[in-house]
Design a protein around this nucleic acid. Structure first.
Lengths: 123, 123, 123, 123
DNA sequence: GTGGTCTAGACCACA
DNA sequence: GTGGTCTAGACCACG
C-alpha cells in the first residue's frame, strides 16, 4: 500500500503516525486488533524488525497493548487517545511558538502569517 | 558557554541555526567576520571539524563566504537576511501545519488552537 | 586497487569523478547499489570518512540516494546519466576555452590547434 | 585595479596569469621592469607576501628575473615567452582531450562540441 | 593565523 | 549490516 517513506524521519515512526491517523479518523477504534507484525510488514513493504519497533514504540506511548498469544490491540481506555492528542498538540504548538518567537515575530504576526500560509493553499 | 545540544538534530546544524538567529537579530550584519573555526570550536565546546562543517553548510546555503586566509564572513548582500528569515519561517510554518493536519485538525482549528494557546499566556 | 590521487584536487572529489565515469560508461546503472562506505574505503585505500564525504556530495548533486540501513544507490531517474554527462562536459569545455583565451588564442585558433593536436596522434 | 579574485584559484597564481596576459598582449615586453612588490601589492589590493609569491613563481617559470637592488624584470630572452606559451598550451589541450575521451567522446565530437560551444556565445 | 582535507577510531539510529 | 555524526589530532596551501 504505502511504500514510499520520507528519508528525514525513521520509517518505524512514520508507520506509527500512519496507525495513529487511522485511530484519529476512527478507522481503528479502542479494542481493535492490529495486523500481526508479519502481516503489517508485508502490508507496508518493510522489514518485520521495523514493525516490531513501531509496535514497541506505540506500546511505550500507551496507545496499544499486546496480549500474549493474541496480538496487538488498541487500548480499551478511550481517554488515552484524546489525552495523547492533547499532549502532542501542546508540544507541536509550543515548539512552533518558540521558533517563531526566535525569528522575532509577535503573537499577532504568528497568527497572521499562519493564516496567510493556509490561504495560499495547502500542500 | 552554550554547551547543550539536542540529541535529535546534528550539532553542526544546531550551531548553524544559532548563527542564523544572530543574523536575524542583527547581532551579526552583512560583512561581519565570524569567529575562526578554532575560536568558534572553543566557544561552542565542540571539535573544530564540527564547526568546519557548520561553516561549509552555511556557505553552501549562500549565507556566508570564506576569504582565503582571512576567515569566514556574512555575505555582503543584505537581502540575505530577509531571505533567510523567509526561508526559515516557511519551514517552521509548513512543518507545523503538516503536524497539525496529521493530528486531524482542520485549518480553522489550527488557528483557533494557536490563538487560545497564545492567550493562555506564553511559556 | 586505485591508490594514486592527484594532489591538486580533494580525494573525495576524485573518487566522485571515478564513480561518475563508471556511470557514464554504464558500468553502473540507475538503481544499482554502490559499495558500502566501508567497502569502498578499502577498495580505494582511503579512510571511510573520505568516502562518506564523497557519497554525501554525490547525494547533494542528486546523482545518488541513500536508503536507511540499506546502502547508497544510483538514483532511478535515468535522465541523470545524460544530465551528468552534459554538466561535466560543459565544465570541461568552458574551462578549456577560458584557459586558451587567457593564453591569447582566438576561437579559430583554439579549434585549429585542437585539430592539429588530434591529427598528430593522441597520447 | 583588479580587486576581485576567484576563490577557486590561489590569488598569487591569478596575479601571475594577469602579468602573463600583459606579456602576451605585448603591454609588457622583454626587459621591462615590473612594479616593486610593494607597489604591485597596492595596485592589486593584496598582501605584499602574496605578490612575493607571484614573483617567485614567475621566476621559477623562467619568465622573470630579479636583479639585486634593481627590481624584477621580464627576461630578455624572448624565446622563453613563446616556448612557455607552447608548453602551457600543450598541457591545456592534452588535458582537455583526455577528459573528453573519458566522457566517451570521439575526436570528431570533441571538435564539434567545442565549435557549438563557441558559437553559442562566449562568456 | 585562516580555512580545507584527511586519518583513526568511536558511537549512534536504523533496517 | 548500513549510513550519519563526532572527536582527536594532523598536515597543507594560502595570506
Amino acid at each position: 500500500m504505502a511504500k514510499e517513506f520520507k528519508t528525514s524521519k525513521p520509517i518505524y515512526l512514520q508507520i506509527a503516525d500512519h496507525v495513529f491517523q487511522k485511530i484519529i479518523r476512527e478507522e481503528l477504534k479502542p479494542g481493535d486488533k492490529l495486523p500481526s507484525v508479519r502481516e503489517m510488514a508485508v502490508l507496508m513493504g518493510v522489514n518485520p524488525n521495523t514493525i516490531q519497533r513501531t509496535y514497541s514504540e506505540m506500546e511505550r506511548m500507551g496507545v496499544v497493548e499486546t496480549r500474549r498469544g493474541q496480538g496487538t490491540f488498541i487500548v480499551e481506555n478511550s481517554e488515552i487517545i484524546t489525552e495523547l492528542k492533547q499532549t502532542i498538540q501542546l508540544e507541536v504548538i509550543s515548539s512552533f511558538v518558540k521558533k517563531m518567537k526566535d525569528l522575532g515575530f509577535s503573537k499577532e504576526e504568528m497568527i497572521a502569517n499562519l493564516k496567510s500560509y493556509l490561504e495560499r493553499g495547502e500542500k
